[in-house]
Design a protein around this nucleic acid. Structure first.
Length: 663
RNA sequence: GCCCGAGUAGCUCAGUUGGUCAGAGCACCCGCCUUGUAAGCGGGUGGUCGUCGGUUCGAAUCCGACCUCGGGCUCCA
């Protein structure tokens, strides 16, 4: 029928509309609720504004605000409004890029006269954003030529730079969200009724009035194009959601995440601290934290022993010669503590890595192919002079202990060795309670690497092949390898879905050459081994932090510093409480008692705040019957009259099996 | 390293414009209470207000430098 178009919907149905109808009209024709929730549309596979007229025969999908794609549109639009607000408040400000990100958005600015945002400015900016939202300004999309684009943004150096990058076909991925399509008029901009124009590919919500549930979170510095040699801009982070409930839920999640922050739990549970007197990024572990570490390490040692590793030890400090040979002083020096001058000009360095030491152990005598693979393991403490701004709790420190091992093997052995290693890694991590993994392959860091292209290619391909057999997602990290070789890292998602880099496995053809390592083969001639560097925890400190956050401080019984506390109801039950504690200790359990100087409720509360797996209460009935009252972490109500012997045996069994509960 | 912010008792925090502003709760110590599943009562110890310097008659409060921490950027186990 002339004057009408027909479009098809995702459910296979089709609808007929007047010619010139937009995606908004389509949504409206389907239902008011859909129209209200609609923020954009996907027309024949491309995301477009709701105001775009639909071509006849198009496949159309309405994007609603509560979907991931819809939230992205909301957030991109909110970033746009943020920029509009800032330019209203600071006339002459320059704005750079403002993309949506996970849970929110940001925008980078440069204020006139070198002015800087402070946290207090966020309130004013947010107010201005609300005003713009209240004005319900329409977003108008326009497409321009390069020349027109440069004219529109003639007073905006960062926008101009992006447009010129498009013109030269050199637009990076970062810019992609900022620009437009192809063809003669590749510069797409969005203009608001208020006279504000931003470079943007879109789509945007139809008007600013659709944005209501947003909040500015923080202000931070950020280098232009992520390059520390370029100007530093001011970045404002915000979050935006489709409803106030979704926003509130997001803020609540942030609060919950804060409660399981390992730095906070470290203080609350008396596990570790960072005394100022020692210096930034250098932790001390208190008795309870030290005990958790010991349990972690003991189990790791046991597993390594079973997996055919040999245990070695090496000093924390070495003469510079070692790191000259290894190449660390050429490639890693800026992450090393400066040297100590000793013994008439000899320079000594704290070690930032263990590998050269293990290499010297290998090289201490002639090796036969019969000894390979040789797996040398050490809990090796290393020191790295991290830049002051990057130190962060136990996850980024200046002194750490790696569960480090170096495997020396033949080229023929390396694929099988890597494969069994990956299985070993994942199996071990699962025993500590992590179960959701993916792999990352880091390739040659251009300009910061030793070795030939062929060697890197072979090493990288070997890792890729092995990784691809693991039935896990594999993502690329171009240029993220170590200076001597590519690496696979194991990333784990924790209980609330955050990802952490845990293990790293690096394949190295370089250090064996630099140290001229050899083994005598079956053919009676000398060959060069290759090396695998691997740390499964990454560092004991970081892994400790990850586990603390994963469990929210409620460590499973096998890792818990105190597995059960016995509480006598009255003074006269203390003897029995001690007897119960001793009975449990005889099963190898870690148990303490808390006498009746405080009311039972108060002692229960303290034990709960310490997140102990079990609190055992003993009173008259228990003394008479040889039982305990069991208050198990995570269970609704306590269980009375439990026989001590079976309880002790069951708990000991849970510990032996590294049972993950109770939480 | 860079940008923003913060450092007041072991912890969490109050301290208006510089002048009894050195405080509270928890923790800790001492008493009393003798308790059946998340805070019993009373008393007490404890801080040169991150450090050093400056402004001032007078600084926790204003200024500067440094240290440490937090949020980011860059970097990374």
């Amino acid at each position: 029928m002339p004057g009408q178009i027909t479009v098809s919907l995702p459910d296979g149905s089709s609808r007929t509309l007047d010619a010139g109808a937009t995606a908004a009209d389509l949504a409206q024709s389907i239902g008011r609720r859909l129209a209200r929730a609609a923020v954009a549309a996907v027309v024949d596979g491309a995301e477009v504004d709701l105001a775009r007229p639909l071509p006849d025969g198009a496949k159309v999908e309405i994007v609603t605000n509560e979907t991931p794609a819809g939230r992205t549109v909301l957030r991109h639009s909110a970033a746009h409004v943020l920029a509009q607000a800032v330019l209203r408040l600071w006339p002459g400000a320059h704005f750079a890029i403002g993309p949506p990100i996970a849970d929110g958005f940001y925008y980078d600015f440069e204020l006139p006269g070198g002015a800087r945002f402070s946290e207090e400015d966020l309130g004013r900016i947010e107010e201005e954003m609300r005003r713009i939202a209240a004005e319900d300004q329409t977003f108008h999309r326009e497409e321009h030529t390069i020349a027109e684009g440069l004219e529109i943004f003639s007073d905006q150096p960062y926008k101009s730079e992006i447009i010129r990058a498009v013109a030269e076909g050199a637009a990076g991925e970062e810019d992609a969200g900022e620009l437009a399509g192809a063809g003669e008029r590749p510069v797409s901009v969005y203009a608001n009724d208020g006279g504000f124009v931003d470079l943007c590919r879109g789509p945007h919500v139809p008007s600013t009035g659709r944005l209501a549930h947003f909040k500015l979170m923080r202000v931070a510095g950020a280098y232009w194009r992520g390059d520390e040699h370029r100007p530093q801009l001011q970045r404002i982070y915000g979050t935006a959601w489709e409803s106030s409930a979704a926003l509130a839920e997001h803020l609540h999640r942030l609060e919950e995440a804060e409660k399981r922050d390992h730095r906070r739990l470290g203080v609350e549970l008396d596990l570790f601290s960072f005394p100022d007197e020692i210096g930034s990024g250098l932790a001390v572990f208190h008795p309870k934290g030290g005990l958790v570490r010991k349990v972690m390490e003991d189990y790791s040692r046991r597993r390594h022993e079973e997996a055919g590793y040999s245990f070695v030890n090496s000093p924390h400090i070495t003469r510079s010669d070692l790191f000259e040979i290894s190449g660390h002083l050429d490639w890693f020096a800026d992450a090393m503590y400066p040297p100590m001058e000793l013994d008439e000009g000899h320079r000594y360095y704290l070690k930032p890595m263990n590998c050269p030491f293990h290499i010297l152990i290998y090289r201490s005598r002639q090796r036969s192919y019969r000894e390979l693979p040789m797996r040398l393991f050490e809990f090796g403490s290393v020191y790295r002079y991290e830049k002051s701004g990057v130190v962060h709790g136990l996850t980024r420190v200046r002194g750490m202990t790696q569960d480090d091992a170096h495997i020396f093997c033949t080229r023929d052995q390396m694929a099988a060795e890597l494969r069994s290693l990956l299985v070993f890694v994942l199996d071990l991590l699962r025993d500590y309670g992590l179960s959701d993994f993916y792999l990352e392959l880091s390739t040659r860091p251009e300009g910061k690497a030793v070795g030939t292209n062929e060697e890197w290619e072979e090493a990288t391909e070997t890792l890729r092949t092995v990784a691809s057999t693991m039935d896990l997602d594999l993502v690329m990290d171009e240029g993220g390898g170590a200076f001597y070789g590519p690496k696979i890292s194991v990333q784990a998602r924790d209980a609330i879905g955050r990802t952490w880099q845990i293990s790293t496995i690096q394949l190295d053809f370089q250090l064996p050459q630099r140290f001229q390592l050899e083994y005598v083969g079956a053919d009676n001639s000398r060959h060069r081994p290759i090396m695998i560097h691997r740390a499964l925890f990454g560092s004991v400190e970081r892994f400790f932090a990850v586990l603390l956050e994963h469990y929210g401080g409620a460590l499973p019984a096998w890792l818990s510093p105190v597995q059960a506390r016995v509480l006598p109801v009255r003074d006269d039950h203390e003897g029995y409480a001690e007897a119960v504690a001793d009975r449990l200790r005889s099963e190898g359990l870690r148990v303490d008692t808390a006498g009746a100087s405080e009311p039972l409720g108060a002692r229960i509360r303290k034990a709960k705040l310490e997140k102990l797996p079990y609190v055992l209460v003993v009173g008259d009935d228990d003394v008479a019957a040889g039982t305990v009252g069991v208050n198990r972490r995570g269970s609704e109500r306590p269980e009375r009259g439990v026989d001590v012997g079976p309880f002790a045996a069951a708990l000991a069994e849970d510990v032996a099996r590294r049972d993950p509960g109770p939480r």
